[in-house]
């Protein structure tokens, strides 16, 4: 666990789509302010379900989710956003039928009217690719541009915590590098970041700490650097064939 005061914490969290079939099975985690936590684990470990639960998209069976000093377990997704929790889903994370500008406007609606233009402008400044074509239909964007738009949409509300579910899925290695570089930059600006990833090496390279989820429970945690160099952990939980080999 981080030494910093937790900005996001779960306690004995159990969740899943069906009441009698929990996928997340008692997760205790605490993420300190400004941390960049990478959530790893084999396929089916419950990583996506865990972050969707935190975001309010999967029913909680028991346990709690706390954001800062506020318990947000039972809050619907849209209220969690208002309290500073932003989530970027793995797929279908933009409104394809809306334009780039409309995607940002939709997200900015929860801000006071006088701040909306300023926050949309801030996203255009951070993602110049989007600023170059605000009227373009989002569905026509490339994979990398879609991820940028999804992240920009999430950042509009200046969240205290940004959670991303496999933003590298379906992207070329070069684009993944661009996306991860941008995520590092966002984290350096003070946004606490939680990243679910299958691209283990790339994720550990930018994360400060890693949690490894196995069968719905946190099996290991430690600094990203330590896990990156731990051959046993890599072989058991990250799917590496050998130390230094490609991870699953």
């Amino acid at each position: 666990m981080s030494e910093a005061a937790p900005v996001l914490a779960t306690k004995s969290l159990v969740s899943g789509y069906e009441r009698d079939l929990p996928i997340v099975r008692g997760v205790d985690m605490a993420v300190g302010a400004g941390e960049f936590v990478v959530l790893l684990g084999p396929n089916g470990a419950g990583k996506s379900t865990l972050v969707k639960t935190i975001a309010g998209l999967v029913p909680v069976h028991s346990g709690t989710v706390t954001l800062g000093s506020r318990e947000i377990t039972a809050l619907p997704a849209h209220l969690k956003v208002r309290h500073g929790l932003a989530f970027v889903p793995q797929t279908e994370n933009i409104f394809a039928s809306l334009t780039i500008h409309e995607n940002l406007q939709v997200a900015a609606n929860i801000l006071p009217r006088e701040r909306r233009a300023e926050r949309i402008g801030a996203q255009y400044a951070m993602f110049p690719d989007l600023a170059a074509r605000p009227g373009q239909r989002a569905g026509a964007l490339s994979g990398g541009q879609r991820q940028m738009l999804a992240v920009a949409r999430a950042l509009i509300v200046e969240p205290s915590v940004l959670i991303l579910d496999e933003p590298s899925a379906g992207l070329s290695p070069k684009i993944v590098g661009d996306v991860f570089e941008r995520l590092s930059e966002i984290n350096r600006q003070g946004v606490t970041t939680i990243l679910v990833e299958q691209n283990v090496r790339a994720a550990l390279a930018i994360g400060s700490r890693a949690l490894i989820l196995v069968e719905g429970r946190i099996a290991h945690e430690g600094s990203a650097a330590a896990l990156l160099d731990d051959p046993i952990v890599a072989e058991l939980y990250l799917g590496a064939r050998q130390a230094g080999g490609a991870a699953a």
């Binding site: 998209l57 849209h78 956003v81 889903p89 409104f95 809306l98 409309e102 939709v106 609606n109």
Partner: peptide, 20 residues
Amino acid sequence: RSMRAVSENQQLAGVAGIDV
């Protein structure tokens, strides 16, 4: 815009801060 967003993807609309 919120109505069009909800029409396209209700879950995403929720995480975009829209009260579906």
